[in-house]
Design a protein around this nucleic acid. Structure first.
Lengths: 335, 335
DNA sequence: TTTCTGCCTGAGAGCGCTTTCTCGGCGGGC
DNA sequence: GCCCGCCGAGAAAGCGCTCTCAGGCAGAAA
């Protein structure tokens, strides 16, 4: 920087002003400095800059799965799951115009203190927290440490923190309405894990809407949001209730597995049994028949998380803010 | 840090030594300092540390796809592709024990200068470069800038840079051998894009091995490594050559699509037509029948890239090093 | 006891940048 | 024509840490 200053015949302070676009620099001088920067091939040192600005221009995407052991297969599942992929894509896209980069940090509960330490050290300016598990202490911890954060779902216990979510119950209701509209009457569902809100909310939403329409006691089995799990659940469900004609599966990945099991068991989809998924991930298009599903705009939601986070970083005192997206029904072939 | 020093009754230098695990500190003093650190809740400032050590303790995973426009669908494809997911998982797992974090940076050619600037600013200590495209200038640029980097494949033009690759031709040969061994004689292949080495090498390897076994002129169509592309290619291939009985598809994702097309066209797999994929990604298990494929140990390869990179960072002068992994045949149901 | 050898610790000089404070110079108003 | 005010640039003080260098103290050797 000194070299640039000397080459341009100005002080270091002026070079700094030019680099940071301060308006109070004479146009001629600005140009001279810029030429000097180009000539010398000068590149600012970010560490020195962060030291004084206390900004790192990067944020962490923390994927917290408290009860999964941190091992190769955990990493593999996380990075191969289309849901996390969509989140990453949405966040990256929203952050890039602001020249902010993403550090991706998967973590389990034994690992939380590492993550906390990392975040407190100032590596990042804020956190996008993907935490679905009800009992996950991370959201509260971050909040108490005053680390700017936006959570990917409504926190289980009330917390004055910003979050972005989709209206889970509405999504389940849309699925129920659609199945009912097709004439299905013997409905069932494969839910997500019930200890995570998106799992239990979709189940509740589905059941309580149907109860209101005079259909109580809808059979349900608890799945795990994996393809394989969906296959297994469908098999169990059809064995216990061979006559069901409409199935709501709480994720597309599970629906893909379920579809396979259903067809293996000799049912035609949608004629014998109509199936509705949830997410509208790429998995919905990998199914045969193509999956009718409840669309969750994951990329947009992640982008919104990023926007809210940047606002928090820019104005640390600002009040928490929550945004709820509306799910929509996407009709394809399976229902 | 001054507070800690005062609380412990030592100098800042000693606190620094304790934090960095210098061996030359008296055990009693070390303990006092550690207690003081705990009491004051002191957390080191990484920016200040990097400023002097010139280390950031993070590395970039740059995913370079020169001819894809940088847009939402590009991001989506990258982050949803199981191959990149496996790379990320492998690298993350290898880096974590060393407390090094990953910054993921997808980029197209219009964006290269941003990435270069980012890397030069010292945000990261090194680069894991996923670059398959033959004409990609990024590997050479990084090399010329002296930024420590490890490339995910043998560079198209000779470059004194470290890389990790799988023996592509051997993989193709294993597929050919297996198909031949099953009794297939009318073989064909769906290749990857021919302007990327992994695409052309697999095709060459397949054809030249078969040519050596007296089977010249094996039909091939050029795919694009997507599920949909595979479906389309298979359809074209079977239309032009209805009698083929063995098919090598250069990626599992494409094979999944191809399998679907083949079955739609009324062929039984593997009885009428045997299919071998490449990768052994999760897609291989999503197929029906389960996909016989050539396993590429992507996670291990990414981990190796990380190890080599860390070695380069630790000893900047060290000579480039290349590691080639052996692919293996995984027999399932499709061939 | 004295001197020498080592091992620890403390003092202090940066690392490269931002930012406040200050001052010089120029233009406009009276 | 003089003074005031404002704009633009420079000087210098850190930001929080590491690390070299030198000094002090203890133990061993003479």
């Amino acid at each position: 920087m000194d070299q640039v200053a000397e080459a341009a015949g100005v002080s270091r302070a002026t070079v700094s002003r030019v680099i940071n676009g301060a308006p109070s620099v004479d146009a001629k001088i600005r140009e001279i400095v810029q030429r000097a920067i180009a000539d010398t091939g000068y590149v600012p040192n970010v560490a020195a800059r962060s030291l004084v600005t206390r900004k790192s221009n990067s944020v962490a995407l923390v994927i917290s799965e408290p009860d999964r052991p941190y091992d190769t297969s955990f990493l593999n599942r996380v990075f191969t799951d289309p849901y996390f992929g969509r989140v990453t894509a949405g966040a990256t896209g929203a952050l890039r115009p602001h020249d902010i980069h993403l550090v991706i940090i998967p973590t389990d509960s034994t690992d939380h203190h590492h993550v906390i330490r990392y975040l407190r050290q100032g590596h990042v300016d804020g956190v996008l927290l993907i935490s679905s598990h009800e009992a996950d202490p991370l959201p509260r911890q971050l909040h108490e440490l005053g680390i700017p954060a936006v959570i990917s779902a409504r926190p289980a216990s009330p917390l004055a923190a910003s979050f972005v979510d989709v209206d889970q119950r509405l999504g389940a209701r849309l699925a129920a309405e659609h199945l009912l509209g097709r004439g299905c009457r013997r409905l069932a569902t494969i839910s997500g894990p019930l200890d995570i809100p998106s799992g239990s909310d979709r189940l509740d939403g589905f059941r309580s809407y149907l109860a209101g329409r005079g259909i109580p006691d809808v059979p349900a089995v608890e799945g795990d949001f994996t393809r394989h799990g969906g296959e297994e659940c469908a098999r169990r469900l059809l064995t216990a209730h061979p006559d069901i004609d409409g199935l709501f599966v709480a994720s597309d990945l599970m629906a893909e597995g379920a579809l396979r099991a259903v067809q293996d068991l000799g049912r035609r989809v949608p004629d014998d049994l109509a199936v509705v998924g949830f997410d509208d991930s790429s998995a919905a298009l990998d199914c045969r028949p193509l999956l009718t599903t409840i669309r969750q705009p994951v990329e947009e939601m992640a982008a919104e998380m990023a926007e809210v986070l940047m606002a928090h970083i820019a104005a640390p005192g600002r009040l928490p803010r929550s945004v709820t997206f509306q799910p929509t029904l996407v009709v394809r072939e399976s229902a």
